[in-house]
Write a protein that binds this DNA or RNA. Structure first.
Lengths: 182, 182
DNA sequence: TACAGTTGCAACAAGCGTGTAGCGACTATT
DNA sequence: AATAGTCGCTACACGCTTGTTGCAACTGTA
């Protein structure tokens, strides 16, 4: 039942330790009905995780990151992922903890794709030649996470957020003329 | 008991839903002993939160962010906070959720100080004139969070991490010659 | 009308974590 | 030696959540 999954997402996003009773209430059904569809609490979270992982994979894939110019790909991937992560906040947080095999696979693929994209970006001069691509990727993830939090709170559309993320990733906040610490 | 608090930090960092039994075991004492010092689980988490909040406040305060050049202050605050956050990962995550009055106060003060610092940095030309200081601060927090995760996993000292955080915040990863998206 | 499918509802069993209490052993102090 | 203090251990009560079951009511279909 799609309704239950969406309700679970809302409830668990607010409180990861919420009970089945709270989920059922949010979905407008009886607790036993939730158990009829999802045998255990764990099964519910699993299906939620898988659902989000598939959406995540679609979001990244549809950006065609391997066949468009790096800067364009970076923007498209960012915007697409933000759209998913804004609506599936809790479920997306579950895709990263290594419990769900499909989620692990998706994350690994996305990570590979991200690394390939950053390599291309560096070769194309979009990223600095001395950029640490692992740290770059982690900062990129953190920026998306932060922007998604803002988006989930109702702070603007995915396009505007993506623009800001990419701009921040590439330029930072310092003045070009300012001295550099390292 | 300091031993119990440190054990609780370790256990809760690995699993926020851990039981008193697990905390006791990690501390090398019986569960009843934990209850003798901390009447309830909530009281334990509260004291842990307060402890971390005080350490956090000390870390920021000792950097003298109001009376040193912005770039120096930024570096010092970053390094000091990283030292605390690396060792009190769970407790620091609790200082932000608004449950602990003292933690709320500390966070508000730190936030004010951070904003003042960024204002000064912008006026001094360290930050760009058009930098959105709220977004800047949130990115700064996210970078510290990410660096602390690396530090907690044993990835280098606070000074090196701080250097990287500040460098990333100011410069980003893009080539100075590259086109800008926004 | 007869039927299958789904749901709400009440009730129940079981497990788990929490919090409390009593008892005995150990240690340091006087 | 006597005492106070701390700790481990066992046992228990309590509440909460989970998961299951049976039954009645409702809906759409044949």
């Amino acid at each position: 039942m799609r309704t239950i999954l969406e309700a679970a997402e809302r409830v668990f996003a607010a409180n990861p330790a919420a009970t089945m009773e709270q989920v059922a209430q949010a979905a407008g059904v009886a607790r036993t009905t939730v158990h009829r569809r999802f045998a255990t609490r764990e099964a519910l979270v699993e299906e939620l995780t898988g659902w989000a992982a598939r959406r995540f994979a679609e979001a990244v894939e549809s950006a065609r990151a391997d066949s468009t110019p790096p800067l364009v790909a970076l923007y498209q991937v960012t915007a697409n992922v933000l759209r998913v992560k804004t609506n599936w906040w809790f479920a997306m947080s579950r895709t990263a903890d290594g419990a769900h095999p499909e989620a692990v696979r998706v994350h690994a693929e996305v990570r590979d794709q991200c690394e390939r994209l950053f390599h291309r970006a560096r070769e194309a001069g979009v990223l600095r030649p001395d950029a640490d691509l692992d740290w770059t990727r982690r900062v990129y993830y953190a920026l998306i996470h932060e922007a998604a939090a803002e988006g989930a709170a109702g702070g603007g559309d995915a396009e505007a957020l993506a623009t800001r993320v990419v701009d921040t990733l590439l330029r930072g906040f310092g003045s070009p003329a300012a001295p550099v610490i390292a």
